[in-house]
Amino acid sequence: MSTLALLLTQVVNALSQSALLFFLGVGLTLIFGIMRIVNFAHGALYMLGAFVGYSLAHWAGTFWLALVLAPLIVGAVGAAFELGILRRLYRRDASAFLLVTFGLALVVTEAVRLIWGPDALQVPAPKLFSGVVFLLGEPFPAYRLFLVAAGAVMAIAIWQALERTRLGLLIRATSQNAEMVHALGIDVNLVRSGVFGIGCGLAALGGVLAAPLVTASHAMASTVIIDAFVIVIIGGMGSFAGSLIGALLVGFVQVFGNYYLPDFALAFMYLLMLLVLVVRPGGLLGKEA
């Protein structure tokens, strides 16, 4: 394998990893921006997405339906959680949210184990992308290329939605000054439910997309939540562009670190996070210290 081809496959690998991480990070950062909540259940909802996707894919016989429906279902679960429980707690301090989202993570993880059993489940990649493509003469899984494209499309879609739609406007306004938005006659609570649902749905989308790559397993929740935290912290909590930059940085550090310096790859990610926080305590694009 030529050096160039190797480098190219590594770069595409890192980009596909970044795409998966981006879905997690952007949901987490949206939720934080609006509600100042660090959602500990994010990893569990990502996992829930993968398992719901598995069932839907088997039931409908097509991956594409799962890709659309699973995020909607998990998003609805998230919105219901906001309506039923989080809404009662906005006057309380941060520890309350920590406890309830941690509780939700336990409940979701255990519910998944009860419903789908303890084993990891194989989700086949969609037929269209199950083969390989050749990059500079080297075979490469087509599904990873699809992930890169999906990540890029979603990033642009979310960015445009935030910039150009009314909902995007409300989300940005609420994250800057919720009281003012409320005073202008907008139901801020509805925005919060919506954003929590959307954030959870995005995590689930990441889960469904990751499933063909890593199989749907219970371990995916606890490892991935820390990655998501790292991304959001590096990028700056509440910053959309920050979550994109964070996902790219972490994706590249993970893939290249694992290949070239496997002994230090894990430590690199946290060193990167420490470094960013020491230099800019609010993250690269964050506002608050």
Partner: peptide, 8 residues
């Protein structure tokens, strides 16, 4: 599962 519900 019950653990989580008790925390909430």
């Amino acid at each position: 599962l019950f653990f989580g519900l008790i925390f909430i």
